Computed example of a mutant assay.
Amino acid sequence: MRPLVILSLACLPASPALAAFPCDELWGERNAVYAEAGYCFKTQRGIAAFGNAQCRFSDIRDVPLSARDRAKVAEIVREEARNGCRD
């Protein structure tokens, strides 16, 4: 398995720039938002990438995200769907 590389998409324009990112990087960027907000990962992949040492929310619906983070996650999810990515 390749090491996970998390890139910051915050300064990139919408979809066209995201299209250049492989599924693993999109997954990492999306889940980094949740990790920073305190999500407790359940999958081995999530735990291996982000750990659960500082987690506070077991249900992803309870994770408090800013409007900016919600928009970022939504854009990444759309790009993952366009690219045929699967978790």
Rank of each mutant, 00 (worst) to 15 (best):
S8V: 01
S15A: 15
L18F: 13
S8N: 15
R68A: 15
Y39Q: 01
M1S: 13
E80H: 03
F21G: 00
Y39A: 00
E80T: 02
I6P: 01
R68P: 00
L65K: 05
Q54F: 10
A53Q: 14
K42S: 13
V77W: 02
L9F: 15
D87F: 09
P64H: 09
R86W: 08
D62C: 04
P13V: 05
L12I: 04
A10E: 15
A32W: 07
L12R: 11
E36H: 08
S15I: 11
Q44R: 14
A48C: 05
D62M: 10
P22V: 04
T43Q: 08
N52F: 05
N83S: 15
L12A: 13
V33A: 05
G28S: 04
A49P: 07
R56L: 12
I6T: 12
L26G: 03
M1N: 12
E25V: 14
P64W: 12
R56I: 05
Q54N: 13
R45A: 15
F21N: 00
A48G: 12
A48Y: 06
V33Q: 03
R78W: 08
R56G: 02
K72W: 09
A48H: 12
C85W: 02
K42L: 12
K42G: 10
Y39N: 00
Y34H: 05
C11D: 15
F41E: 01
F50V: 04
L4T: 13
R61F: 10
E79M: 13
L26M: 08
E79D: 11
A17C: 13
P64C: 07
A32I: 00
P3D: 12
S15G: 13
Q54L: 09
A81Y: 07
I6R: 10
C11W: 14
R45H: 10
E79Y: 12
D87M: 06
V73L: 07
R30K: 13
C55M: 04
F21L: 15
Q44F: 11
P64F: 10
I6M: 08
A10S: 14
T43R: 10
L12T: 10
A32M: 06
L65Q: 06
R56M: 10
A35G: 04
S66Q: 09
S66L: 09
A20P: 00
L18V: 01
A19E: 15
A19N: 12
A74D: 15
G51C: 05
R2V: 09
I76W: 05
C11G: 14
I47V: 15
G28Q: 03
L9V: 15
R82M: 03
P16L: 08
A81R: 12
A71F: 11
Y39K: 03
S15C: 06
K42A: 14
R68Y: 11
A17P: 02
T43G: 02
L18I: 03
P13L: 06
Q44T: 14
R30V: 01
D69K: 14
P22N: 09
L4P: 00
S8H: 10
C85P: 01
S8P: 08
Q54P: 00
A17N: 06
I76Y: 02
L7C: 07
Y39M: 03
L7N: 08
S15N: 12
R86C: 03
L26F: 09
D59I: 06
L65R: 07
Y34A: 01
K72I: 07
L9S: 13
E29N: 09
S58Q: 11
V33G: 02
L12H: 09
G51D: 03
A49F: 11
R70V: 05
N31Y: 13
S66F: 11
D24I: 04
A10R: 14
